[in-house]
Amino acid sequence: MLSDIRLKSEINPMGDQRNRIHPHKFALWVAIASMIMMFAGLTSAYIVKSGQASWQEVQTPVWFWYSTAVIIVSSLTMQVALRAMKQRQMAQYRSLLLITLLLGIAFVALQWVGFKWLWTHGVRLEGAGEGQFLYIIFGLHALHVMGGIIALLVILLRQYFGKVISYNTTSTEVMSTYWHFVDILWIYLLVFFIYIG
């Protein structure tokens, strides 16, 4: 009996529960709601502050447009990687995952360059204007991307050095949902800073 079930669950991790979402995926959605609240808290603080006296705006460095392009492309490669995995094209899956990882690192690097540009153009931490909010909000977003990079690295290492080949798509699905989330979050933040700021 038990072994039957186990066999079935290895093939289809959800077993009989086709209608129910995997608990890990569901937990991620709840976590996303939580992260949205954090950034909503910060951007609403921004709105409140921007309506008050002595609000100072900054120029958006061109580097943030490059990083936007990079993270959008990385979202696409992540999605194609997931599709490759579902079709069991593992070689393609691995290389796409690796590209996503490199693009993620490139994104964080470009953000850093953008920060440097602002810093050299006189935007320091003193004050409470757009620049200070930008450092904190974009910095926190970059931390979230770095979290994703670490997760990607773990998945990749498991793929290259794991003892068993796993065709279980759950962790990759969770990964891709998170990756698209930080992508969309970035676009929201950029648009927010350009239009509200």
Binding site: S34, M38, L42, L125, G127, I136
Partner: peptide, 21 residues
């Protein structure tokens, strides 16, 4: 709780990094 955390982050910046939120 995440909103509290964002409030704390701004407070930490005010305490140590010279911002004036």
């Amino acid at each position: 709780f995440p909103v509290l955390l964002s409030g704390f982050i701004l407070l930490l910046f005010d305490r140590h990094l010279g911002t004036s939120f």
